[in-house]
Amino acid sequence: MRDFWKRFRHNRGAVIGLVILAVVIATAIAAPFLFPQSPWKMVQRPFLPPFTQEGLPLGTDALGRDVLSGLAHGAYVSLLVGLVSTIVALAIGVPVGALAGYFVGRTDDALMRFTEFFQTIPSFALAIVLLAIFQPSLVFVIIAIAIVSWPPVARLVRGEVLSLRTREFVEAASLSGLSNSQIILRHVLPNALPPIIVLASLMVAQAILLESSLSFLGLGDPNIMSWGYMIGAARTVIRTAWWLSFLPGMAILLTVLALNLIGEGLNDALNPRLTRRSE
């Protein structure tokens, strides 16, 4: 563990990313305490520019709502969507990939064709279609994002498992009479974990971007203040009040950047040999 942290720390970008993410997480957790009022509350006259009114450091939007409060509450929504949808995607992708990679043959063919079926449709278009069919609520937004983001997980896990299943320790486990499920769960998957963790960190970033894009298009949950919603609502006034799109845009940019940096750092930390070779 200490080695891990040492290697992670070695990547300065990753540390910066971690700091940014910590700030975002802290903001998300603190939002209900810092801004106990609903972010939808109309508190002042509309279109107050930033730094012109005490108590409203980032000004107000088209309906006179506090932009800073919106950003803070939006952080919670973005992280929630990012995390939960990634967990759901992993829950679909890991078993599919593990089964396909371990059993090969027909199982592999069937599962991989099924996965490819999802991969051939552009993920954003599929998410839009799914939300057009469902009622756009937070739960369905998460489900839609999970459904479009699990196929890469399945492929990655399958590849890892394929290479692991022929190793001696797996054969040894098999000879000692362990069942297939025990072998997969206890011996194969734990060894496939590092690349999954790296991918997951990037998937969180991807999910945040997807949620923002969907909200931007008005396909998000209309009852929830998210960053994508804030940009979508502000784009119509971009010529007169550019900061209303710029600020949540920066929030998304920083959060996604932070997650990508962390992913990079995790990659370095979890695959030390790979890193050294590339140096």
Partner: peptide, 26 residues
């Protein structure tokens, strides 16, 4: 369009402030 969407949000907020639970249906 946008104007009507913002308007629904404003009405929801108005009603919330007198103590009603309102949910926007897209």
């Amino acid at each position: 369009g946008e104007t009507w969407q913002r308007w629904a949000e404003a009405v929801k907020q108005n009603l919330t402030e007198i103590g009603m639970n309102v949910e926007l249906v897209p």
